[in-house]
Design a binder for these strands. Structure first.
Lengths: 249, 249
DNA sequence: CGGCCTCTTGAGACAGTTCAACCTATGTGG
DNA sequence: CCACATAGGTTGAACTGTCTCAAGAGGCCG
C-alpha cells in the first residue's frame, strides 16, 4: 500500500512540491490494490462510475467503439497514469478501459478523492495538471490522425511511447518491450491492421524501426524524428525540475 | 462585469449547486472584459501563459499547426467555454487560439484562479468538470477522424455544433448562423476544403443539410442522425438537472 | 495433431487528394 | 460608377494512399 502512495506522490510531485501535511493526507487516501488479467474490462462505456484507478504496473487501453464494432483507441495508459478520472466527473463513462497486459492497479472511491481535493486543494490542482497532460496527448493524437500520413503517424506514435516510457525508467531509448499488437497500433492511428503491417515494413526496410515478437527496436532515432516531425513538447516532461508554487502556499 | 459572473456561474452551475459564500468568491474573481476583432490571436502555441479566458460572445478556434503549415483544429469554442485553461496548467501553450468572429471575452489571471480553487475547492471541482466536458468533445473528434468517413464526419460534427448551440439558446434546432468557412470544417475533420465542398453537396443533394452564406439549415434531422450514428451522450447535457454533491458539502 | 491468433503478402477497388480552372459576392480606389 | 482585387465557393480529371478481400505462414496451446 505504501507502493500506491509512492507512485501517486511521484506522479503529482512532478508538478509541484507538497508539504508534509499535504503528503500525509495524500497517503491517507487508501487505495485498494488489485491485480487483473489481460483483457479484463475495467470501465465500460455507458457505465456510471464511482471509482477511478491509478496504474501501478502494466499497460491498459482506453478506447471507444462505434455501433458497428469499429474501435478507436484514445490512448494507452502506463504506470502512474490515472484511469477513469474523466468518467467519474462526467458521471457516466464516455469510453471503455481494458487491461492490455496483466495489470496491477490501485482503486479509489471518487468520494474519497473529492474529499482529498477539498481538504488539500493544491493536490487537487496537481491532479488537474495530470489530467491536462493526458489531454495534451489526446490532442496530439488528433493532429496525428487529421494531418499526417500513415508513416508519419506511426513514427510519431512510437516516439511518443518511447518518451513516456523513458520518463518512467522503463526500457532505454531504443529497445524496449511493447505489448501492443498491430491491431492496437491500427486502432490508435485510425488505420487498418494490414496497412500498419505495410507501414512497419516500410520503416524496417529503411532501417529505422523493427518490431519483432513484442520487442520494439529503434535503429535510427534521428531519422525517426525527422519522419515524424516530432517534438516532445506536448508531453510536458522537459521542465527541468522547475515547479510551480500553487495558490498562496 | 456582472455579465462575466453570470456566464461563469451559469456554466459551473450546470455541474453543482453552490452556496452563497462560494458564489460570492466566484463573483470576486474579477475578470477583465475585452472585445477583439475576428482573426485576433489570443494564445499562440509555445507561449508561456499567465491568463485564461471565458468566451462571453462569439466563436473562437483552438488549433495546432505542423511545421509545413498544415492546420488541425482541435475544437471551436462557444459562449461559456473556457480558453487556455489547459495551457496555463502546462505552463506553455500546446495549441493556439484565434477569434473566428468578433469576440467578447473575460480574462482572468491564473493566480487568481488558483486562489479561488484553493479557497473554494468545490468550485475547483466544477472547473475540473468543465475541462472534462471539453476533453470528451475532443475525444469524440478523435473517434470521428479515426473511424468515420467524410459524410459521417461532417454529419456528426454538424450535430455536435447544433446540440452545443441549442443548450446555449443560440438558434433553434434546424436553422442557425454558423460563421465557419469550408476550410474550417476541413481542418476540424481532417479533410481537404475541396472534399468538404463535395461532401456538403452530397448532403444537399440528399436534402439533409444546406449551408448557404453563413447559415446552416438542417432539412432532415432524423436522416442526419442516422448518417452520423450520433448520440449526444458525450456532451454531458442530458442529466435532467440532476447535480452532484461535491465533497462534504 | 489441430485450432487459433497474429503477422505477412498480393491484387484490385475506392475514398479522398491534388492541380487547375472558373464563378460569384463583396469591397476598394480612381 | 466602373475596374479591379480578394476571399470563398464550385467543378472536373487525374492521381495516390489506404482499404478490402483473399490466401498463406509461423508460433503457441490444448
Amino acid at each position: 500500500v505504501g507502493e500506491v502512495n509512492r507512485v501517486l506522490a511521484r506522479k503529482l510531485g512532478q508538478y509541484a512540491d507538497f508539504s508534509e501535511d499535504e503528503l500525509a493526507d495524500l497517503a491517507a487516501l487508501e487505495g485498494e490494490v488489485q491485480e487483473v488479467e489481460p483483457d479484463t474490462e475495467l470501465i465500460a462505456e455507458g457505465d456510471t462510475i464511482a471509482r477511478c484507478y491509478i496504474v501501478l504496473e502494466g499497460w491498459a487501453v482506453c478506447y471507444k467503439r462505434l455501433p458497428d464494432g469499429r474501435r478507436q483507441v484514445i490512448n494507452f495508459m502506463l504506470p502512474g497514469d490515472l484511469l477513469g478520472l474523466r468518467s467519474t466527473l462526467l458521471r457516466v463513462a464516455d469510453h471503455s478501459v481494458k487491461a492490455t497486459t496483466r495489470l496491477q492497479l490501485a482503486r479509489f472511491l471518487v468520494d474519497d478523492l473529492h474529499r482529498l481535493i477539498c481538504d488539500q486543494p493544491r493536490i487537487g490542482v496537481a491532479i488537474f495538471w495530470a489530467l491536462c497532460r493526458d489531454e495534451a496527448i489526446v490532442v496530439e493524437h488528433l493532429v496525428n490522425m487529421g494531418r499526417r500520413n500513415a508513416v508519419e503517424r506511426l513514427a510519431h506514435f512510437i516516439l511518443e511511447l518511447t518518451a513516456r516510457l523513458r520518463v518512467l525508467g522503463l526500457g532505454n531509448q531504443d529497445d524496449y518491450a511493447c505489448p501492443l499488437r498491430q491491431e492496437d497500433f491500427a486502432d490508435v492511428l485510425g488505420l487498418t491492421t494490414i496497412h500498419i503491417n505495410r507501414t512497419f515494413r516500410h520503416l524496417r526496410e529503411r532501417q529505422v524501426v523493427t518490431m519483432y515478437r513484442g520487442s520494439l527496436r529503434i535503429l535510427d532515432h534521428h531519422k525517426l524524428i525527422e519522419i515524424a516531425g516530432f517534438s516532445d513538447h506536448f508531453l510536458d516532461h522537459g521542465n527541468d525540475g522547475r515547479k510551480i508554487p500553487i495558490g498562496n502556499a
